[in-house]
Design a protein around this nucleic acid. Structure first.
Ligand SMILES: [Mn+2]
Ligand SMILES: [Mn+2]
Ligand SMILES: [Mn+2]
Ligand SMILES: [Mn+2]
Lengths: 216, 216
DNA sequence: TATATTTTTTAGGTTTGCCTAAACTTTAAT
DNA sequence: ATTAAAGTTTAGGCAAACCTAAAAAATATA
């Protein structure tokens, strides 16, 4: 399997969540930063290999074999992200691009040993579940802080806005990866939230609560 | 720089040691398991990019810029080999093939962080020196046991024969990576050697001494 | 329903890296 | 010095993965 085939399968897997009855060549090529004509070609090849189901003008969906292949790449991607964040000094926003390359290394032993070395992690640094060797994957337990109710708690696993002003704000408030947040209450009129972090209480605007991801 | 260009530069660097006045397309293509015509093509391209000096029928040699590029790939290869052997449970004979893939990952930060994580190693698990960030590389201190003299000592860093019968023999004699050998004496008539390992003395045939590498 | 717009596919090209077979150059052997 | 053998380059092709432009199909609009 080529790098390109792996990237297409992985992308189809991801996009299927939002397009359950078929991922169009338009959507797929936009996601992969190629052109629709290129997506059509690749999809036809993957169909001939029995990895996807393709009907002209109807989009693609993965067959079981295609989903298994996609999940293997996703497993590698997330294990490498975990390695970069936990063992090397990479921050959560630097890991994706490098993992995008590392996910294509071919060695079953390597990925098994890496998994062991990392202590068989269940989630990557963004809070996304890591599939097991057989391709089983847990349901995503990631939410925005804005989706929580008073009394709920969550562990900060990432943000949606990487502007330095927002990151500086988080730093000032002592909110970082791993911080445990508990929702104290929600202001009805502006959806701002009072949250408890490290026994301190602080107020977050609606915009802020929508930009912080937690694992519940 | 493509994977293929990197592989050619690295190969030329290695083969130059044995062919100082020019690596022929024949030698190069044999080493890379391609055909001479393919080597000619690639060499012409590398010459146009100013990385090698090529004159038809006279072979290639690296220019300074080409040697710098080659050493960067070699640095990555050897750091990854060290990672696989020291941090994951890979044996010394399993690391090369995986490192052959990992050496092409593009990220300056990754290789800097990996170097730090490994404790800035000076040699890879085969005893070969690891170039620094600037491309400086120490002279190789690797020898075959057969090249040592009585009184010399060396640390076992690899073998030249990976047949299971030879590896079993080493295992029986308790010779492993890191074992310190001291040459006690050499039999003139058959070049067999008496060596001391862990305060035991044992006899190695000439064939055996030629198949064991040590760092001196 | 008929037409216009958008989406998708097809047709024809390009680049990279590989190949084989033929032509050419160098080296070795009479 | 000729000729034979070996090594090297050139010429012409192929597969993968991309592209643009034109044709075809599906969808939206009047
Ligand atoms: Mn990622
Ligand atoms: Mn990728
Ligand atoms: Mn190696
Ligand atoms: Mn390589």
């Amino acid at each position: 399997m080529t790098f390109s085939e792996e990237n297409y399968l992985k992308s189809i897997y991801t996009l299927q969540k939002e397009h359950p009855k078929g991922v169009s060549t338009n959507v797929l090529s936009k996601y992969l930063d190629t052109k629709p004509a290129s997506a059509t070609e690749m999809i036809k090849k993957l169909d001939e290999k029995g990895l996807v189901h393709y009907q002209p003008y109807q989009g693609v969906i993965l067959k079981d074999s295609g989903a298994v292949s996609a999940l293997k790449v996703i497993r590698k991607h997330r294990l490498w992200e975990t390695f970069l964040a936990n063992k090397l000094d990479f921050s959560w926003d630097e890991i994706h691009d490098v993992a995008e390359q590392l996910e294509h290394i071919k060695s079953d032993k390597l990925i098994r040993e890496l998994d062991k070395f990392l202590g068989y992690p269940k989630h990557d640094p963004h809070g996304d579940p890591i599939p097991d060797e057989a391709g089983n994957i847990a349901k995503l337990e990631k939410k925005r802080v804005s989706q929580l109710q008073p009394g709920d708690t969550g562990t900060c696993i990432g943000v949606n806005d990487t502007s330095s002003s927002f990151l500086q704000f988080l730093d000032q408030q002592n909110i970082r990866l791993g911080s445990v947040l508990e929702i104290v209450n929600i202001q009805e009129f502006d959806k701002s939230m009072t949250v408890r972090i490290d026994d301190r209480e602080l107020l977050l605007s609606q915009i802020a609560t929508e930009h912080i991801y937690v694992r519940i």
